[in-house]
Each structure stands twice: as structure tokens, then as C-alpha cells.
Design a binder for these strands. Sequence first.
DNA 1: ACGATATGAATGAATG
DNA 2: CATTCATTCATATCGT
Lengths: 199, 199
Amino acid sequence: MDREIQNGAYDDRVMTEEQIETLRKQIAIYVVISEQLLLLYNSLSSSPLISSGMNAIESGFFDPMVASSSAHGMSSRHRWTPTSMQLQILENIYKEGSGTPNPRRIREITTELSEHGQISEKNVYNWFQNRRARSKRKQPQTTTTKMAGQADDAAVAVTTEERRSCGDSGGFESYDHILFPTPDLGIEHLLSGKKFMDS
Amino acid sequence: MDREIQNGAYDDRVMTEEQIETLRKQIAIYVVISEQLLLLYNSLSSSPLISSGMNAIESGFFDPMVASSSAHGMSSRHRWTPTSMQLQILENIYKEGSGTPNPRRIREITTELSEHGQISEKNVYNWFQNRRARSKRKQPQTTTTKMAGQADDAAVAVTTEERRSCGDSGGFESYDHILFPTPDLGIEHLLSGKKFMDS
DNA sequence: ACGATATGAATGAATG
DNA sequence: CATTCATTCATATCGT
């Protein structure tokens, strides 16, 4: 693949491909781990975990967002916050649907989503409104409008492009506040329990 | 009608950053999932779980650059920090009564500010949003401390400006788009063996 | 180092 | 729909 150097510095990217590659590996590994664990669990437990659609997750078992909010008492649930499940579903619908959810559809969606958490039609409606409005903001970039004639930082090159099609790969972009513990969220601490910190 | 042709765009995050973010999120998700599953498993069995399917990881398969990443070399995820110059200009404009940051105006401002450092329309937009919100909520006044329009802006700006000259406007993003792993790495297939919409 | 504060950014909800 | 407001999250900086 060819990349065009816009700033003349192909080497000063904050993250090298190598690092990125590592990230990818990590993900792949986690996929495997999760699958293995799931299998393991299911093999010796009568409690259906995945067979029932991974309800454990929905039940707040793992949803970090829910967990965090509830930890705070959650008494102040002024503003609805979609659970990861709900978000995923919404994203899915958004992707296929022309983004023009008719009232009837809204109702359906709401019903469906209500199985994964508290939600109202209004929420769904708003969500789609916002989703659409916000994706409207691509970044054609091009701040070069009239950079006048200064010549200080030519290194700046907002390589913007590519719409915000982020919701795709899984629609899990709402995990921003997920606990991303320490930079070294290696699997070590996962595998060795919480003892790896001991040293 | 002038739809956002190619300029506007309050959302102009460099996509590399975004993609990396997505990767990080995915990993984070897997971390959580794995932890939960592990916990589940362990609660049911005392068997050596680690030696089961995780060997692959420990065997060095897992090679995180994690440790080196967020140390301080900083990856891409940095929030914009206005330079003193930019801040002054912003404050100026804010006070001038153009408290109505019209999209049009935003663009102008951005262009101007971009001469003093990396900045995007989104940054400007956010800045005004926050500035206004903050002013409103912050009415405690009476605190002759150092509020009002004294030297709040300049002081802070100068302080942070030099100090935080690390990833500032200079060498920010030059990286191009990174290749994205297969979207299939999403945890969908993990979470659901079924479809979400049973409608 | 940890905790408080300031502030950039994300986003649900409201308004036109 | 397009914008704007309000609330919240996350992180940088500073204080003890």
C-alpha cells in the first residue's frame, strides 16, 4: 500500500504500523481468549451463557458503562445512556435503514431495545436525529483555504478524510469510558488473576 | 443552499486517531469480557484455567507495545490545547459580542487561528460551547479572587503553552490512515450467536 | 504519588 | 433537519 507523505515526515507518526499491528494482535488474542473462556464456562455450567444470547452481558454483568453509573448510585439518571447492547442495535439499524425511521419503526425499535434496558421512543428518536446530524460532519478538511503566507509550521497536515463510519466494525464506539486500566492492560493480569501486580 | 460542501465539519478528527481509538476500545472490551468470563469460570471450577487456552498468550505470542505506548511518548490521543495566542484571540472574539458563533464565523476563526498552531473547527466550536456554558454556570462571582476578565486567560495560556509544548501544533499528526483490521474482529460474533432483531 | 480543579470533548435532549 | 444547550466524561495541571 502506498501512503503519501504529506508533511514530509513519514516517520513521525505517533503510532507506527508495528505498534498498530500489535494492537491488532492483541485484539485477535482477546477474541480467542473470550471464545475459549466462553466455551470453558459453558462446558461446565448448566447456566446458559451464550446460548441465550449472552444474557450475562445484558444483565449488567459486564457492561462497564452501566456498572460505572450504578456504582455512583445511579440516582441521577437524568439523561438516558444507551447500553452497549442498545447502541449496537441502534448502530446496526442506522446502517441499514436509510436513517429515516418512521414513527412506526421507532416504536418497533423501542420495543426491541427495551429488552436491553430502560428506554423510550423519545430516546430512540433523538438518537437517530443526533446520529444523522452528527455524521453530517465529515471533515473534508482543507484548512488550506487561505493560509496566507506564513511559513512556520508546514508540518501540519490534517489528513482528514474517511467519514465517520466508525459505527461499523461493531458499533462499539461508545466504549470510550470503558476502563482501559493501565496502559499495560496486558493479559497477564487477566491470566494470573490480580496478583501480577504484586511483583 | 450551501450544504457543507467540503469545509465545515466540526468533526474533523484525524482518522488515524479515530481508528486507533477504535482499536483500543475493542481491546478494552475484550479485556472486560475476558475478565468476566474468567471470573465466571473460576467461580465454578478450581481447575487451572490459565494453562488451558491461554498458553498462547503467555508463550510470547502476545507482545504488547503497550508498555511503551502511553508512557509519555504519547500516542495520538491528545486533546487540543490552545496556545496563548489562540486563546487570546478566542477570548477576544468571545468578548466582542459575537457571542453567536455562527458556523460561518467558526470557520473564519479557525482559519485565523490555524496560523498560530494546529486547530480545527471542531476545536473552536467546542471552545465556544464550553466558554458559554461555563460562564453561565459560573456565576458565583463575588469571589474577587481572580475571576472576571482580569488576567485569567493570559495567565493560564502562557503557563500551559510553553510547558506543554510537547505534542502541540508542531508535530502532531502526519500519519496517514492506518490499515484497519478486519471489522469482523468485533465482538458481535462473540456476543451473539443469534440476531438482535427478532422482529 | 494522590486528589482537586480546569477544560477539551462527546452526546442526549431541546428548540427553530 | 439544523443548531444550540446542558450534562457528563476524560485528561492535563497544580496543590498538598
